[in-house]
Simulated scan of single mutants.
Amino acid sequence: MNPKENIHPIEAPAGLRERKKRLAQAAIEEAALRLFQQKGYEQTSIQDIADAVTMSSRTFFRYYASKEEVLSGPIRSTQLDGIRFLQEEAPPASPHAALRSVFSYLAGQYQQQRPGLLLRYRIAGQTPSIASLFLYTLMETEPTLCHELSSRLESAVDRNEVRFLVAVYMAALRVSIEEWMEQEDGANLVDILYRHMDRLSSMPG
């Protein structure tokens, strides 16, 4: 037997692969946002973005499925972080307590991303075909959030009530983000959200 047949290629450690992936995604996002500002979102092609980071369009698709995903990626990622936060929390005392905790966490995460989110928000707002992109991205996680919250509450809790409360708190987050984006850089999203969530505390749940 040829000894070379027993030699296996050395694979990069998972941590290194993940780091390389994140660096590539960051480069793609930076180039895409620059091009969206210079040329306009609809006038920028995936090939334009790939050329800007010296990769093929085929390689681009290893990291993103579309231009829309490049634009909305941070929101989707943050929303998924919120679900993981709920999964790791101690069992909540009530739906309201759990939702206040999760959405406060989300607001804190978004607060740290303000410059990039503001740029993405403006690009989407100036492009009719994707004007509602951020709204849809926020709403995508509602079913999973409902499921996770219901599974961590007592079985006697009405799941339809949980679904309603999740939708209401999501609306409060959306309105808070829009208000926050329209204010000066010193605005605090967490404070704005708390003001809106306080209005919900009298609701049943």
Rank of each mutant, 00 (worst) to 15 (best):
I7R: 07
S101W: 02
R159L: 04
E68P: 00
M55K: 01
R174P: 00
E178Q: 15
Y110N: 00
V190E: 02
R163I: 09
L118D: 07
I123M: 02
P92M: 00
T54W: 05
F164T: 08
L153F: 14
A172H: 13
A107S: 04
A65N: 06
P143V: 06
M139D: 10
A27S: 05
A26C: 09
L138W: 15
E178T: 15
L200V: 04
L165C: 11
Y121T: 03
R58N: 14
T44E: 06
M139E: 12
D48G: 02
Q113H: 05
P9M: 13
G186L: 14
P74L: 07
S56F: 06
A90T: 15
M181G: 07
A97I: 07
P204C: 01
V175T: 14
Y41R: 08
V166R: 03
H96C: 09
R19M: 12
R84L: 07
R120K: 03
F60N: 09
R22C: 00
L23P: 01
H96Y: 01
I192F: 11
D48A: 14
D48C: 01
A98L: 04
T137M: 11
E11M: 12
Q43N: 01
R22F: 11
D191T: 06
E161V: 11
I123G: 00
G186H: 05
R195M: 07
V190A: 11
A50Y: 15
L80F: 09
L106V: 12
S56H: 14
E30H: 14
R199I: 13
F134Y: 09
A12N: 00
A50V: 05
T144N: 14
P128T: 11
V70W: 09
N188C: 15
I28H: 01
R114L: 13
D81A: 14
V166P: 03
S202Y: 10
L165Y: 02
G108R: 06
H8N: 09
Y194D: 12
S132V: 07
D185T: 01
H196P: 03
A131E: 00
L16W: 13
T44K: 08
M55E: 05
P13I: 03
G73P: 10
T59S: 10
P204V: 00
T54V: 03
A171P: 10
G73I: 08
R152S: 10
Y136H: 13
F85N: 13
G116I: 00
